Measured scan of single mutants.
Amino acid sequence: MATGGRRGAAAAPLLVAVAALLLGAAGHLYPGEVCPGMDIRNNLTRLHELENCSVIEGHLQILLMFKTRPEDFRDLSFPKLIMITDYLLLFRVYGLESLKDLFPNLTVIRGSRLFFNYALVIFEMVHLKELGLYNLMNITRGSVRIEKNNELCYLATIDWSRILDSVEDNYIVLNKDDNEECGDICPGTAKGKTNCPATVINGQFVERCWTHSHCQKVCPTICKSHGCTAEGLCCHSECLGNCSQPDDPTKCVACRNFYLDGRCVETCPPPYYHFQDWRCVNFSFCQDLHHKCKNSRRQGCHQYVIHNNKCIPECPSGYTMNSSNLLCTPCLGPCPKVCHLLEGEKTIDSVTSAQELRGCTVINGSLIINIRGGNNLAAELEANLGLIEEISGYLKIRRSYALVSLSFFRKLRLIRGETLEIGNYSFYALDNQNLRQLWDWSKHNLTITQGKLFFHYNPKLCLSEIHKMEEVSGTKGRQERNDIALKTNGDQASCENELLKFSYIRTSFDKI
């Protein structure tokens, strides 16, 4: 039985969820670079991206490699990797027998973001014989899940209580170790020597080791999670996991709180800001991140802002960003909400898709409305799209047979046209069989910064309504002859009103 693990408890099935942008060198404390989270699957090609990484700022997932063999891993080693800020997950990587050479110096898994409450997941690794993470000293947050690894031993010899604050939620089941077939031998045991430290858990006094050649490092209890030197002297209180010299914040392997210019500090002093819960960055760093993602459509890219001495992905609820200094300031009234469309555009074809934009005031991208039916549609669209004030790209209304009016965009005031449909149009209306009105132009103002209007096959939309939009939106004169079809717009509506004058002759039985 794995020490510190839980057996036999019912657990939810383990679901495996399925960018080499360097964020800056980590400095003297770390020998390499800070790398983003990685999802490495199918083959070993991307694994080489770990070569210079000291910190993975995010998670590391290595999974679904069915053609790899043990010899493929023999020359692979990433000794610079010290810390993973989120979680480490391995799933069905064939041929991998140990992690001792792959990650010989991995010391800390912070667990800032977890995989279903777990910071370390080893699942269905069919050839893994031992973990071998002999320098792993601290899992700051989260638990361990090690399950269905039929060859995995050296679990009962690990004292997880020396690595985690609590072992109650560890789930370590259905491994070879369960069948008591392992016969784990710690260093020196074969020669009758006791080389590794022994600890007591559940009444068992057991030597602690990761492999037959690597003991588990056990520091004096007084050192807590700070770690200790090879001689057993406690590291500085700002260290986490390990250090090369005692009581020196510049000799830590990793930091308990924050890293700044080669030393570990309790908090980031001005003019620095907390970033990702582990390091200090200056304003320029946060500003660069903001600008890199301002026009990016890459998933996970955030326009970072500053709030409460932190550089964070977005302002919290009730705050909006001051564009001059990136500071989050309290909103006066309802907060603006910028919604970034991942692929640059979004099609609204149902109430469900409209709900995804609920509360958005600025759309960074283009909207395509293609709704053919739905219950209580006008009210639903207004509830979900009615706060949109600005669209950076274009607005396209296409084959939306259920629409009679666009009044559900009740606050839309600006279409920038930074991206144009077919390279020309910022407003595009095609084949809307029941569209009769755009907006009530006596109450609604709309500016279209650039781009043209396109109207074709809107049989109940009168040309007068379209011409009014040209005047109000500032697009009059931009359109070419064929942009607004004269014969297919309003051709099934009563669009022309003329005053009919009647004269009559009164007659009676005795007068003409």
Results as ranks from 00 to 15, higher is better:
196 C>R: 11
325 N>R: 09
302 H>Q: 14
61 Q>I: 06
275 F>C: 03
296 S>I: 09
127 H>D: 06
75 D>E: 09
206 V>S: 15
169 D>F: 15
92 R>L: 13
293 C>D: 02
195 N>L: 09
309 N>A: 10
241 G>W: 01
42 N>E: 08
187 P>F: 14
335 C>F: 05
210 W>F: 02
212 H>D: 12
226 H>Y: 03
44 L>M: 10
299 Q>E: 02
190 A>S: 08
41 R>G: 15
224 K>F: 10
91 F>G: 05
293 C>T: 01
136 L>H: 02
222 I>Y: 05
310 K>M: 08
43 N>W: 05
175 N>H: 14
191 K>M: 08
215 C>M: 15
276 Q>R: 10
248 D>N: 06
120 L>P: 01
74 R>F: 04
74 R>H: 15
148 K>L: 06
293 C>G: 05
299 Q>K: 00
318 G>S: 10
271 P>W: 15
202 N>P: 12
155 L>G: 06
134 Y>P: 12
215 C>S: 05
75 D>F: 15
33 E>C: 15
306 I>K: 03
218 V>M: 07
321 M>V: 13
109 I>V: 08
324 S>H: 12
146 I>G: 01
224 K>G: 08
266 E>S: 14
206 V>T: 13
103 F>S: 00
285 F>H: 09
276 Q>T: 13
192 G>K: 15
304 Y>K: 02
288 D>F: 15
144 V>E: 01
152 L>F: 01
105 N>I: 02
117 N>G: 07
286 C>S: 02
323 S>V: 15
134 Y>A: 04
268 C>E: 00
44 L>C: 05
136 L>T: 02
194 T>W: 14
194 T>P: 10
107 T>S: 11
28 H>W: 09
220 P>L: 11
119 A>F: 00
162 R>S: 05
314 E>R: 12
298 R>A: 06
180 E>S: 07
222 I>N: 07
332 L>S: 03
137 M>Y: 14
62 I>H: 01
120 L>T: 02
83 M>E: 13
318 G>R: 09
131 L>I: 12
118 Y>A: 12
220 P>M: 06
46 R>C: 14
86 D>Y: 01
90 L>F: 06
35 C>D: 00
121 V>A: 09
302 H>S: 11
121 V>N: 01
159 D>L: 02
43 N>K: 05
324 S>F: 02
164 L>V: 15
54 S>E: 09
271 P>R: 13
53 C>R: 00
83 M>P: 00
95 G>W: 04
102 L>W: 14
176 K>R: 04
228 C>I: 02
86 D>H: 15
107 T>P: 00
166 S>V: 14
325 N>V: 06
198 A>K: 06
86 D>R: 02
60 L>P: 00
149 N>F: 02
214 H>C: 15
83 M>G: 02
56 I>N: 01
75 D>T: 12
49 E>M: 13
333 G>D: 08
263 R>W: 06
211 T>L: 05
43 N>D: 09
268 C>S: 00
110 R>D: 01
274 H>R: 05
309 N>R: 10
155 L>S: 05
96 L>W: 02
118 Y>K: 05
302 H>T: 12
232 G>P: 05
107 T>C: 03
133 L>K: 01
297 R>F: 03
90 L>H: 00
44 L>R: 09
144 V>Q: 01
166 S>F: 11
98 S>C: 06
205 F>V: 07
148 K>W: 02
246 P>C: 04
110 R>M: 08
125 M>R: 00
242 N>R: 13
173 V>L: 11
129 K>G: 05
260 L>M: 03
139 I>W: 00
279 R>C: 02
74 R>Q: 04
226 H>P: 12
268 C>G: 00
118 Y>S: 04
242 N>F: 08
70 P>C: 07
44 L>Y: 07
253 V>P: 02
185 I>W: 15
191 K>D: 03
40 I>M: 10
139 I>Y: 01
240 L>E: 09
218 V>K: 14
300 G>E: 08
333 G>E: 15
189 T>S: 07
319 Y>A: 11
283 F>E: 12
83 M>W: 03
135 N>A: 10
78 F>W: 03
235 C>Q: 00
111 G>A: 04
207 E>S: 03
249 P>H: 06
160 W>F: 12
50 L>F: 10
264 C>E: 00
48 H>E: 14
160 W>E: 00
182 C>S: 05
39 D>N: 09
334 P>D: 04
150 N>F: 05
196 C>E: 12
257 N>T: 10
332 L>T: 03
223 C>H: 02
62 I>M: 09
162 R>C: 13
248 D>G: 03
234 C>H: 01
46 R>S: 14
97 E>P: 04
280 C>D: 00
178 D>M: 13
193 K>Q: 04
229 T>L: 13
97 E>V: 12
258 F>P: 01
50 L>R: 02
200 V>W: 06
236 H>S: 13
126 V>Q: 02
66 F>A: 04
124 E>C: 03
324 S>N: 06
128 L>F: 09
73 F>I: 12
211 T>H: 05
143 S>R: 11
63 L>V: 13
181 E>A: 10
291 H>T: 01
79 P>R: 08
169 D>G: 09
157 T>V: 05
308 N>I: 08
331 C>V: 08
272 Y>V: 07
178 D>K: 08
228 C>F: 02
328 C>S: 02
